[in-house]
């Protein structure tokens, strides 16, 4: 990325215009990839010889778990940009992405526990992955709660940035300590995602779903950011023009 693009991104108006050009393509890609991946994963992928058809949950569980983790890293990167370069758009991105990331974490947890029932026989085990995912959810809740508790918009964004950075430094420590705790108390007998010996017709749809989830995340975050930009800039001439354009007089009672 060149520096001119970086500086341009700081301008809300420029972002609003360019994102309206990106959105349709991204949305089409997301729908196409998600539909292809789901149909392939549900209908065409072969059955797992150990877990039977319950393994098909992998096609939503793993992408959601990916997004949950990348989402928090996204928050931290946005926080860093916001603190170092004081870019308003990074503030917007951080607060727009936090709820979406939290929803992805919820999805990963719920699908993981639904998958756990036929494979482990219980809805929940204190397995290292599930436990770290639960802690990640709490970290997301912290960022969201802090952002909502502080009324001043700029200080809320800065406080969330600091918290996201502190969280991202802690994530590896939490992850390793939870893994260590897990091996100490109950040696892992069965892990959900076995890497070896997965044939191409099994992992190709998974790859498609992962990319599709990323596109979906981008679409939702862009949509939320566009709304937030409109709200922040509501006094400027370009936002008024945009409102005139999208809401002609006759649509109002």
């Amino acid at each position: 990325m060149t520096w001119t693009l970086f500086h341009k991104l700081g301008s809300p108006k420029w972002f609003y215009e360019i994102s309206s050009r990106w959105l349709p393509g991204l949305a089409c890609a997301a729908v196409l990839l998600l539909v292809t991946g789901t149909v392939w994963g549900l209908v065409f992928a072969p059955e797992d010889y150990q877990q039977g058809n319950s393994f098909r949950i992998i096609y939503i569980h793993v992408p959601a778990a990916f997004l949950a983790q990348s989402g928090y890293i996204f928050l931290a990167v946005a926080g860093l940009i916001s603190l170092v370069w004081k870019m308003k758009l990074a503030d917007v991105a951080l607060q727009a992405a936090a709820p979406v990331g939290a929803w992805m974490t919820v999805l990963a947890l719920v699908t993981g526990s639904i998958w756990g029932k036929p494979t482990w026989g219980t809805w929940w085990v204190w397995d290292a992955r599930l436990t770290s995912m639960l802690i990640l959810l709490f970290l997301y809740f912290g960022v969201i709660a802090l952002g909502q508790a502080i009324t001043n918009r700029d200080s809320a964004a800065k406080a969330c940035s600091v918290l996201a950075l502190v969280g991202v430094v802690n994530i590896p420590i939490i992850k390793y300590s939870v893994e260590w705790w897990n091996t100490l108390h109950q040696p892992a007998t069965f892990t959900l995602t076995r890497k070896p010996a997965m044939p191409a017709e099994m992992w190709l749809p998974l790859l498609i779903m992962v990319v599709g989830f990323y596109c979906f995340f981008a679409v939702v975050v862009l949509m939320r950011m566009r709304l937030a930009v409109l709200q922040r800039e509501s006094r400027t001439a370009w936002v008024k023009a945009e409102i005139e354009r999208t809401m002609p007089k006759r649509t109002l009672r």
Partner: peptide, 8 residues
């Protein structure tokens, strides 16, 4: 299990 996960 599969359908509830996908539905959710």
């Amino acid at each position: 299990y599969v359908w509830s996960a996908y539905g959710l």
